[in-house]
Design a protein around this nucleic acid. Sequence first.
DNA 1: ACTTGTGAAATCGTTCACAGCG
DNA 2: CGCTGTGAACGATTTCACAAGT
Lengths: 224, 224
Amino acid sequence: MKSSDIPVPAVKRLSLYLRQLEQFKADGISKFSSRRLADSLEIKDAQVRKDLAYFGQFGKPGVGYSVDALIDNLRRILGTDKTHSVVLVGAGDLGRAILRYRGFRKKGFEFIAAFDVSQAKVGKKIGDVPVYHNSELESVVSKHNVKLAVISVPAESAQEVTDRLCSAGIMGILNLAPQMLRIPPAVSVARVDLAASLEQLSFLVGRGTREDVTERVTRSKIAD
Amino acid sequence: MKSSDIPVPAVKRLSLYLRQLEQFKADGISKFSSRRLADSLEIKDAQVRKDLAYFGQFGKPGVGYSVDALIDNLRRILGTDKTHSVVLVGAGDLGRAILRYRGFRKKGFEFIAAFDVSQAKVGKKIGDVPVYHNSELESVVSKHNVKLAVISVPAESAQEVTDRLCSAGIMGILNLAPQMLRIPPAVSVARVDLAASLEQLSFLVGRGTREDVTERVTRSKIAD
DNA sequence: ACTTGTGAAATCGTTCACAGCG
DNA sequence: CGCTGTGAACGATTTCACAAGT
């Protein structure tokens, strides 16, 4: 099945399913029904079943799903059963926060290098991650065959950094800069825009309306 | 018009329109067509016109839209024509990065207080923002009638912090913790989940598919 | 001639409801 | 009997296409 047949919102929910399943496992739960998972995420049980059905048949009628087996399957589907090397460009406050956050490694992501233009940062380490000058970007990315990058540079430099990452072979970019990126057709982008997220909340609060402006998870009514 | 009549994805795009218009203004452009704005965001022109039409009639047939006038209108619609006070809970690396980022003020958001449990941080300032102990959360929020909060605490404490923010009168929460939040019906949540965003990219890169997994919007009940 | 605003059509995603398996 | 997997119905959002304004 082509992933273009799979709704993007469904894939986003897989990440939530995975996290909840890890919670189930921590709680000593080994089997669950679509209803149970759905209730814990405040979505419909049919949504859970349909999302999983895009990728295979993981449940047993009358029984439900196995926590361990589905965790393995979700990791495989998301590609996080193997560790991904990731580079970060822009070791400012936000970049530094990301490099120091230990949660990524548990999720299958390992930052192997950071890049910055400030000579004061080059040669140091942030967390365990060595900081190189931006000029080394292409060589490090190609040499380690890195496919994922995080951009946390000012908006003005985001496009230039993107162009260089893409020519060096990066296939997926997490863009934290408040800037639209033009990218080659083969490359994917996920944008995280904190100011825009606050604007959404401002809009809802200003209208006295309650809704969920979280990246699409369900499509029921009203908010989260 | 009720905001529930307005597609959430449309509201998310308003933030993108506003940013692009500010760029147009910086470039000395004073008029533009829906086509021009749409092309710069890689969407369809009809989408731009329909999104704006939810809120009024801002263009002139044959002429287009005025950059200045539409910037004013979008700010008013989003509620950022007036400055919002915001509090942040959890002055770790990520919280610190947000407090130091100067871009929020320009967008109409002013952090007036941060809260943390670490006595080493309490009494200091991060950027210009004073750090209080978590125990002061309710009093500061009520006293200044703050409506927006950012949560950047570990997942384990996110729900407790949420409950306290909500009883203190917060109406909109930007949740950076990898944790589902249960909230009262009147409160809105926007979730930003960096690990999940990387998982989306991992999925797409693993399939050799290109898509844009940038946060879309939801209208779900997930209190994440 | 160019561009907006907007019904109508098309597309996309969610929810229902049930047949069939365990 | 409970639960999954799924076609069909429904609902939401996007895109088309054009009448009307400048």
